[in-house]
């Protein structure tokens, strides 16, 4: 189980492969569910040029660790990985990676979905978008279900 808040651009696929190779026992898992969130160049019908992600250092990490532990209690999770960017992002930059390894797909799908929705609704991150005519805070996330 690993969580990390990243200040620099990252490659979710490389990080996923590295983590799986180094940390998840080969042969133990039969299912890996992966979610990657990527920055769009539009929001609420406006073009978005760039974005800054602020977070609450300390609380963010604590919250992500808590939901990772909770997911492992509620589902048969063998391992999980959560990576999330902060700082300045450009369209097409990866924002978040959530990956869950389990023996069977039910636990991997359900735990990863739950982790992602908990992260979106409660992890203390805030997005500020830069548009052609100024900046604005994103007021709320879209509904996930």
């Amino acid at each position: 189980m690993h969580i990390e808040v990243l200040t620099q651009a990252f490659d979710p696929w490389q990080r996923l492969q590295d983590y799986q190779t180094q940390r998840v026992a080969a042969g133990s898992y039969g299912a890996t569910a992966i979610f990657v969130g990527t920055m769009r160049d539009f929001n609420v019908s406006d073009n978005v040029q760039s974005m800054t992600l602020e977070h609450y250092p300390g609380m963010t990490e604590k919250y992500l660790e808590t939901i990772s532990r909770t997911a492992a209690e509620r589902w048969a999770v063998l391992d999980s990985l959560i990576l999330h960017r902060v700082g300045d992002l450009a369209p097409n930059d990866p924002i978040v990676l959530v990956a869950v390894w389990s023996a069977h797909r039910k636990d991997a799908f359900e735990a990863s979905r739950w982790l992602m929705e908990e992260l979106k609704s409660k992890a203390p991150f805030w997005k500020k978008e830069k548009l052609a005519d100024g900046e604005r805070w994103v007021e709320k996330n879209t509904e996930g279900y």
Binding site: G37, L53, H55, Y56, M59, H84, I95, V96, M116, L119, K120, S121, K122, A123, P124, F125, W126, K127, W137, V138, E139, K140, N141
Partner: peptide, 10 residues
């Protein structure tokens, strides 16, 4: 003690 608006990560 911290105050903040609705979160918008992910």
């Amino acid at each position: 003690v911290a105050f903040f608006p609705p979160v918008t990560g992910g």
